[in-house]
Nucleic acid binder design. Structure first.
Length: 409
RNA sequence: GCGGGCGUAGCGUAGUGGUUAACGCGUCUGGUUGUGGCCCAGAAGAUCGAGGGUUCGAACCCCUCCGCUCGCCCCA
């Protein structure tokens, strides 16, 4: 899988540069309280998926289940509020969630995370979505769709939640068990149900995104307009709800349009203007997203992404005979000095074995050094690609000849 | 956390109660004197996911756990 990982890392490097992001690395574990407060202690991620342990001092620590609170913590702790705003940060980081693993869902996965902290501009929301879209494009992903919604600000959302509960209350007995539980704990999730019993009520339920407060509506309109301007296909999904407490206004996911898999979501995020205050900092608007490497790679495979698989070596040094090991070692060193990727055959093995290995390694050239060559301070340079022509050269001329042979054309 | 399927050499598979678990690919070694790719021959490689149980006898039946996988919950 390493070539895929390299391709993803490479694309991330490109795209973060294009958008002016700087890298940050946060620890693999944090105080458990950070996520309980930041992500929300009734969210599934914290309540039933977080790996928590006590250290020797009795402090509760957690393996990071998600990146945003950790970066927010670092922003506050290191006084980034005094930097020119907004601060654009990205990371690639292992995330841990206790769960029953399956394809596309692992107990440890790696997330690409981007956060823009210190701007309430709706254009920034569109910009991070575009960044992620561009990344996926670089990785050859097609047929993707941005699912977008707004969940307003906390005040209007509370008012809406009350309206939603009033709507559902008379039908409570007819809802699925899950939905009855959601009614009290997380009413927005009622709209997310896939249970047949809930569907008729879901259809006619009031939708938050259709009755936003004026500031949130304006914000939402700007995001949509900007994305339309850059030609990104956006579907407004009134039922899109995210599983973390800190979001407000913009929420989004990017999913394959043609894949009904349960674990299909490639990346998602949104605005979280309230998080900094929850963590004890000054009011600081922010927006960001996370995207999982493993799901990205699954999707790259589905799209038959063409990888550049580098050859293991340019030259394979074959040697045989009394005292040849030292000279072969030296020759390999000189080839590497000349910038050539070089692998040396095993000293004990026959020439035939070493030639077989040379062939299997994908090396284009073999430098062969037997007893005769050793005596003459020379080596045979053999082109392994087509005809297999070979010529004997003084040791000092080997690297130069190999470089000539490797010249394209 | 919930429900279903699967788990045999490095990889892909066969074998579903009875003597030394099979095949393909891969690996290694050879096919005469120092040369790859094709071919041929031989070899190595498996506590049959782990532990317990039933049986004269278990890869095969039962239980528990672990892993993979599909769906749900949720999410990346």
């Amino acid at each position: 899988m390493q070539p895929y990982w390299a391709a993803v890392n490479n694309a991330i490097l490109q795209v973060t540069r294009l958008y002016g992001f700087r890298r940050i690395d946060t620890p693999m574990f944090e105080s458990a309280a950070l996520f309980e407060k930041g992500s929300g202690d009734t969210t599934d991620v914290v309540e039933k998926e977080m790996y928590v342990f006590q250290d020797r001092g009795g402090e509760d620590l957690a393996l990071t289940p998600e990146g945003t609170p950790a970066i927010a913590r670092a922003y506050l702790e290191h006084g980034m509020g005094s930097w020119p705003q907004p601060v654009r940060l990205y990371t690639t980081h292992p995330m841990f969630r206790y769960d029953r693993p399956q394809k596309g869902r692992y107990r440890q996965h790696t997330q690409f995370d981007c956060e823009v902290i210190g701007s309430s501009d709706a254009l920034v929301d569109a910009e991070v979505i575009e960044l992620l879209w561009r990344l996926y494009g670089l990785l050859g992903l097609r047929n993707l769709q941005v699912r977008l919604s707004s969940i307003d600000d906390p005040g209007p959302r509370r008012a809406y939640t009350e309206r939603l509960k009033e709507y559902y209350r008379p039908h409570l007995g007819q809802l699925s068990e899950d939905s009855q539980r959601r009614f009290e704990r997380n009413p927005l999730r009622l709209l997310d149900s896939k249970d047949d019993r809930d569907l008729p009520f879901k259809e006619a339920a009031p939708k938050l995104v259709e009755q936003l407060s004026d500031p949130a509506a304006e914000h939402h309109a700007i995001v949509q307009d900007a994305l339309a301007a850059s030609g990104i296909p956006v579907v407004i999904d009134p039922l899109l709800v995210r599983g973390l407490d800190y979001y407000n206004r913009t929420v989004f996911e990017i999913v394959p349009a043609d894949d009904e898999r349960a674990q299909g979501t490639l990346g998602g995020g949104g605005r979280y203007d309230g998080l900094m205050e929850i963590l004890g900092g000054p009011p600081t608007p922010a927006v960001g997203f996370g995207s999982g490497f493993e799901r990205l790679i699954l999707e790259m495979q589905r799209n038959a992404f063409e990888l550049e698989v580098p050859e293991v070596a340019d030259v394979y040094v074959v040697h045989r005979g009394e005292g040849s090991a030292r000279s072969a070692f030296r020759l390999a060193g000189e080839l590497r000095d000349a910038g050539l990727a070089t692998v040396t055959g095993d000293s004990g093995r026959s020439m035939k074995s070493q030639m077989r290995s040379a062939n299997a390694s994908g090396a284009k050239v073999a430098a062969i050094m037997g007893e005769d060559e050793l005596a003459r301070r020379s080596a045979v340079v053999k082109d392994l690609r087509e005809g297999g022509q070979q010529e004997e050269l003084p040791l000092g001329a080997v690297a130069g000849r190999v470089r000539e042979l490797l010249q394209p054309g």
